[in-house]
Structures are given as structure tokens and as C-alpha cells.
Computed example of a mutant assay.
Amino acid sequence: MRKRNGYYASFLIAACAYSSGAWGLNPCSKPVYLTLDTGHMEVAPLIAEILLRNQVKVTFFAANERTKVGDGSLGNHWSAWWKARAAEGHEFASHTYDHAVWRGDLPGVQPRFRMKPTAGALEGREFTWDAAKYCSQISYAAERLKDFTGKAPLPLFRAPGGKTSPRLLEVARGCGYAHVGWSAAGFLGDELSSEKFSNAALLQKALRDVRQGDILMAHLGIWSRKDPWAPAVLEPLIVGLKAKGFCFDTLRNHPAYTDWIASHPG
């Protein structure tokens, strides 16, 4: 980090004390749950270094998105990267293979949806998908993750943009996947315009507003943001939250999903 002022240094000292156990015997009594969706992946290696350095475990939601380096984010170029993250103890879940955005339900007895893939060969076109097609999109991303990591992904998924309907969620649950959104304070803002929302302001807001149990959401690179959020904000955010007594855990241990995960083994 370039910024080494007293404010950041004090966070660092406090976080070290916390991680060493100085603040209690239970190191994760005040958890938050950091989740990272795929993106252009250019910053993925730097993010991985930060997570390892700070001993933070996250849950990755993966789609086969267009990247700045190599093939898609679930392509063979990135297989070793995913495998290394599994070895470090992170968790994984589907973000739909083609990063398919729900656009609306269609009438009828059988569930059908208007969907718009934003990655892959069908990027930018709108389609009508039935339940089986949508389930296959969730499952294929999960299968690719398992192929790369050797680890069964969690039976969870995140719809791109968080856009869903009750019927879509019912279909997903019917094929074994519970949906995960994010907390209001957990929207870390890396998708927002850097001209209107500076990294410093986003960091300050997160450190002020995040509460115990919140699910936090950011990306492995956002194309549109001119002043990248990651990795600039990530380390001071982690250090700052630890200094406030928070710890980081994966969704495997989130109380809203533990029963679902236990009843849907991979």
C-alpha cells in the first residue's frame, strides 16, 4: 500500500493484536462474510496476495466472464489460480456460467424467464429460458469450479446483478441452489463511478456502516471504474474491520445457509 499514514498504521497494529488472539479466545465471534464475484480478473492475483497476507477466507462466486488476461474467468488459463485458492481454504459457488441476467418472468404454468447473458458467445442477446436451462447455467459454473479446484462448490449461487424473482429462486432451489445476495452495508461500491464515489469515500462508508453478520460483495475487477477499487481499498478495509473487532468467515458457516448446505452435500 502506498498510503502509510498514522491512521492506516494504527489499523495495522490493532489488526495484528486481534489476529494474534489478544482480543479474545474466540477469533470469529463477530463475523462478516466477504464474497467476491468474478470480473475482468486483472487484479485477481493481487487480491489473492492480500487475502493470504491477512489470512482472510472468502467465498468466490464465479461465472465465465470476459477477462483482460487469458480466456474466460472459468477458462483453462485461470485453472491454476482457482486451484490455489482452494488450497488456501476459500469457498466457491456459481454466478451462472454465462453471467446471465434475469430480465423478467413470462406468463404460463411452467416457469420461463427472459434472460440476457453478458458473457460468452451469446453475450448481449435476450433469450427465453425454461427451468431446466436456468438450472444448467448454475450447475455448469459449479462443475467448472469443481474441475479446477477438486473441491465441491457450495450449493449456493448469486444471480448476476442480484436480479431475481420469487419464481426464479424457487426454480433454483428446486435444482439444489439457494440464492445469496448481500447486505445493504455490504455493497462495497466497486461498480460505481469513481468520479462520484472515490475509493476513500467507499472505504470510509464501509468501515462506518458494516455490522456483524453482514455479507460483503465486491468483484475481481470492474471494467467501467476508472480508479479501480481493488486492490486499493481491499487491504485497508480488511485491516480496518479487524481493528474494530470483526473477523472474516465463509458462507459455509453463515447461519442462514448452514442447514441448507448440510442438507445438500456436493
Results as ranks from 00 to 15, higher is better:
Ala132Gln: 15
Asp130Asn: 15
Leu156Met: 07
Pro155Leu: 11
Phe148Ala: 03
Asn199Pro: 03
Leu220His: 08
Ala201Trp: 13
Ala200Arg: 14
Ser198Val: 11
Ser193Val: 07
Asp147Ile: 02
Ser194Tyr: 00
Ala230Ser: 14
Glu235Gln: 15
Leu169Trp: 01
Lys205Asp: 12
Ala206Asn: 03
Pro236Tyr: 10
Gly189Thr: 06
Ile215Asn: 04
Leu216Ala: 08
Arg125Cys: 11
Asp214His: 07
Thr164Arg: 11
Tyr140Glu: 06
Gly150His: 00
Ser198Cys: 10
Leu237Tyr: 07
Ile222Val: 15
Glu143Cys: 05
Val180Glu: 03
Ile215Glu: 01
Leu188Tyr: 01
Thr128Met: 09
Glu170Ala: 15
Pro155Asp: 07
Arg158Gly: 04
Asp227Ala: 15
Leu234Ala: 08
Gly181Met: 10
Asp209Phe: 10
Pro228Leu: 06
Ile222Asn: 15
Ala159Lys: 01
Pro231Ser: 13
Ile222Glu: 13
Gln212Cys: 12
Glu195Pro: 00
Tyr177Leu: 03
Val239Trp: 03
Pro160Tyr: 03
Ile222Phe: 08
Arg158Ala: 07
His179Thr: 00
Val239Leu: 14
Lys146Ser: 06
Gln204Ile: 02
Ala141Arg: 02
Gly186Cys: 12
Thr164Tyr: 14
Ile215Asp: 03
Glu191Leu: 08
Leu207Arg: 13
Tyr134Val: 03
Trp182Cys: 11
Ala206Met: 04
Pro228Gly: 12
Ala152Cys: 14
Gly174His: 10
Pro160Asp: 09
Arg158Phe: 02
Val233Pro: 01
Gly162Val: 05
Asp227Trp: 06
